[in-house]
Write a protein that binds this DNA or RNA. Structure first.
Length: 287
DNA sequence: TAGCATTAAATCAGCCAGCG
DNA sequence: CGCTGGCTGATTTAATGCTA
């Protein structure tokens, strides 16, 4: 996959994107591997390998993620029964659904619903706007107060970052924090374009101190001056947005980059918004 | 790409809690 | 006590992944 020609890669990416779009448009719809392969113009045999290589997860993983994301949203935002939501999400019964759901977010559907209903009482202090939005790229300069957060360092390829998040959510639940308000923040050290030197931590900010345990640590995210850009859309577009910020905006902005980590502040989550409605503030440190 | 191994999902049986 | 909804463990079945 690494040595693949760029044109081939683009072509493959387009074909695979047709499949993932169809999955997220209607996650509950059952289709055979042959159908999905046909949609991407691959033989079934090659399809799952190409899919996995391009997406970093199997077709089944994507379908499960789409279905459970849909279900999680329904749990958080409606009062319908777990069984109804399970059936609507494409599961044949509530049992299978409960099992898959627990595997996804580490808590049962009803616990999840209780947590997300209860978690509306805490908001981070908003960054103070120093300069208005840039005409070209909607970037504003903000002053951010320090944030104390629980961090879990991501290890492995960028594509598996969702697993680290799942690990941090699991820790959050296991630490008995279900029902407590929280605020997810991604912390990026170094340059994502370089394999070495780039580190990513999944973080959760809490209203008050809670002891860390296991691989989860407590850290103070340094405050100060940041250039803030609001990214709206699926998380897959964040890399390109950062690239644009560093590559296009920063050099012409007159600002100098600082060596504090860049931040991703998630203003909503896949549990309460569809992929195209995900709001993420991207903050790059400036002097 | 066949054939085997592994993994995930479905199914079934049964438990528990809440309620009339 | 029976009914209902929700959850789980064990087992079966199907899909997926790996290897040659």
């Amino acid at each position: 996959m690494k040595s693949m020609k760029q044109t081939t890669r683009n072509d493959y990416a387009r074909r695979i994107a047709r499949v993932t779009e169809a999955i997220f448009r209607d996650p509950a719809r059952a289709r055979s591997l042959e159908d999905w392969a046909a949609l991407a113009n691959f033989s079934p045999f090659h399809f799952h390998r190409i899919y996995r290589a391009m997406q970093g997860e199997s077709l089944a993983d994507t379908i499960r993620r789409a279905r459970l994301t849909l279900a999680a949203r329904a749990l958080a935002m409606s009062a319908r029964s777990v069984t109804d939501i399970a059936l609507e999400a494409g599961y044949e019964n509530a049992q299978s659904f409960a099992r898959a759901f627990r595997g996804f977010v580490a808590v049962s559907p009803t616990q999840f619903r209780a947590t997300h209903r209860a978690a509306a009482d805490f908001t981070l202090p908003s960054p103070v706007v120093v300069t208005r939005k840039d005409a070209a790229m909607n970037v504003e300069i903000v002053e951010l107060a320090p944030i104390r957060a629980h961090l879990l360092e991501h290890k492995g390829p960028v594509a598996s970052i969702p697993e680290t998040w799942a690990g941090l959510w699991r820790w959050h639940m296991q630490a008995g924090l279900a029902g407590r308000a929280l605020y997810p923040i991604g912390v990026c050290y170094g340059d994502p374009e370089e394999d070495c030197g780039f580190r990513y931590c999944a973080g959760l900010a809490f209203p008050d101190g809670v002891a860390a345990s296991g691989e989860v640590t407590i850290a103070d995210i340094v405050g100060g001056r940041y250039a803030s850009y609001r990214h709206v859309g699926p998380y897959s577009g964040i890399g390109a947005a950062f690239q644009k910020l560093y590559g296009e905006w920063l050099p012409t902005s007159g600002h100098e980059p600082d060596d504090r980590p860049a931040l991703e502040i998630y203003r909503n989550t896949p549990y309460d918004a569809p992929p195209e409605g995900l709001i993420t503030d991207l903050l790059i440190p400036v002097k």
